[in-house]
Design a protein around this nucleic acid. Structure first.
Lengths: 108, 108
DNA sequence: CTGTCGTACTTCACCTGTCGTAGTAATTGA
DNA sequence: TCAATTACTACGACAGGTGAAGTACGACAG
């Protein structure tokens, strides 16, 4: 399991990635992150939902309600073009970050 | 240049790496990080020095004074066995982190 | 029909690490 | 002689993550 402040700068990116193949909602995204990371990273609920508000405030995602079954409250999210652009930036930044950090890592 | 909260969880690790080939002091470490990262990461002074206090409190480094030239105040730091162990843990964690994050990164 | 589990969140106060700003003080170079 | 570099220290602000707790609905077991 990975400590949280390593991923800190990338929580938003992970969420955006999850929204790239269509809209989704909190609980689903959380589970997907969990399985895709092979249980190595579990995003806390509070982290996830506060990330949503941040992302929406920044215009990277939009939220809307969808009631499939009566009474079930679910907020869905969709990625925006700005969100996609941000995601791409972050991907590039990640490449650089890897390179940089790897210079300080000794295998043994 | 890399944003700070990407590296956030690894500032301590970078510093420890810098102390692995012998004792050093703040200003020197800062410069070394800068050059080793090819100017892609510049650790802020405040970040650096507050990391020193944290690392020392955790027993990962020890500090001592050395006055080479008269009047020059310099605090030197040396890595401890605990610090080395912590560094190694962090290196392993980093490998996992890379793997995990890369699952969420699409090249394009 | 009752209780627990899973789904799907929300609120809030707290902590940690980083940052900006500023200040100090000595040495070095032009 | 004056700015730049070296070598820090102090302080307050801020952002993001966390733990704890609570809400509310549906499904399913006993």
């Amino acid at each position: 399991m990975i400590s949280s402040d390593v991923i800190r700068g990338y929580n938003d990116t992970l969420i955006l990635y999850m929204l790239m193949d269509g809209e989704s909602y909190g609980y689903e995204i959380s589970k997907k992150i969990r399985t895709l990371s092979e249980e190595k990273y579990i995003m806390k609920e509070t982290t996830l939902y506060s990330a949503f508000t941040r992302l929406e405030k920044n215009g990277y995602i939009v939220s809307f309600y969808k009631e499939e079954t009566f009474g079930k409250r679910r907020t869905y999210y969709r990625i925006t073009p700005a969100g996609l652009a941000y995601y791409r930036e972050k991907c590039e930044e990640w490449q650089v970050t890897q390179e940089v950090v790897n210079k300080f890592i000794k295998e043994l």
